[in-house]
C-alpha cells in the first residue's frame, strides 16, 4: 500500500466509519429513550369527563386530573394485603422524591364504591402519605377511569355474603394530558420505581 492510499484510510475512511457508528448508536439510544418515555403510550387517555368525590366529599372531575402528571392506584379498603402494602410503598416513594413529589398528584381510586364511601376512604388514608388522595363515587363514573386504562376489576364472592375484588395492582403513571406513560408493578425495584416517577416531571 502506498502512502497516499494509507492516508486516505486514516484521514477519511476511518473518521467516516467512526462517525457512522456514533450516528447509529445515537439513533439507537434516542429511540430507546423514546420508547422508555412512551411505554404503552398509544393515546391511552381518560376518554370522557367524569364526576367523582374525594375523601373530603369534594367533587373531582377530569379537569382536576389535567395539568400535572399523576400516579393512579386502583384498589379497595377491604383489601388486607396488597393494597395497604402498595400504598405504604407509594408513601415511601413519595418521601424519597421529596420536593419533586409536589409536581405530581397521587390518587387511590376505589374499585369497590359500595363499601368505599368518602368517609371510609378518609379514615383509611390516615395510615399513608398525606399527598395521596382518594376517589370514589358512582360505579359508572368510576368506570370511565377503569376502562380508560384497561384496569381489571371484578367482584368475587366469599362465604357469608362477603366478597373480595380481583384488581390490577400496578401503579398507573400518566402525564399532564392523562396519557398513560408507564406502570410500576407491586414488586418493582425501588430505584427503578423512583426513576419512573422522576421521569414524569
Amino acid at each position: 500500500m502506498n502512502t497516499f492510499s494509507r492516508s486516505i484510510i486514516y484521514y477519511i475512511i476511518v473518521p467516516i466509519i467512526v462517525l457512522l457508528i456514533l450516528f447509529i448508536v445515537s439513533i439507537f439510544i434516542g429511540s430507546q429513550n423514546k420508547t422508555f418515555q412512551n411505554t404503552n403510550a398509544k393515546d391511552i387517555i381518560i376518554t370522557s369527563d367524569f364526576e367523582l368525590y374525594d375523601q373530603d366529599n369534594k367533587k373531582v372531575t377530569k379537569a382536576d386530573i389535567l395539568g400535572s402528571p399523576s400516579v393512579l392506584f386502583f384498589g379497595f379498603t377491604y383489601c388486607p394485603d396488597v393494597c395497604p402494602t402498595t400504598l405504604q410503598s407509594l408513601s415511601v416513594l413519595i418521601g424519597q422524591l421529596g420536593k419533586g413529589s409536589k409536581q405530581l398528584k397521587f390518587y387511590f381510586i376505589s374499585v369497590d364504591p359500595e363499601r368505599d364511601t368518602p368517609e371510609a376512604l378518609k379514615q383509611y388514608l390516615n395510615s399513608f402519605h398525606p399527598a395521596i388522595k382518594a376517589l370514589t363515587g358512582d360505579p359508572k363514573q368510576l368506570d370511565v377511569l377503569i376502562k380508560s386504562y384497561s384496569i381489571y376489576a371484578k367482584k368475587v364472592p366469599l362465604e357469608n355474603n362477603n366478597y373480595t375484588m380481583d384488581h390490577t395492582s400496578s401503579l398507573i403513571l400518566i402525564d399532564k394530558n392523562t396519557n398513560l406513560v408507564g406502570t410500576i408493578t407491586y414488586d418493582e425495584n425501588i430505584d427503578v420505581a423512583l426513576a419512573k416517577l422522576k421521569n414524569l416531571y
Partner: peptide, 20 residues
C-alpha cells in the same frame, strides 16, 4: 372476628387475586 379463613393472594398478570 366473625369469620376466619386461610387465604392465598396471587398475582396473575399484575392482577391481584385473593382466594380461600
Amino acid at each position: 372476628a366473625k369469620q376466619v379463613e386461610i387465604h392465598e393472594t396471587t398475582m396473575d398478570n399484575n392482577v391481584m387475586k385473593m382466594r380461600p
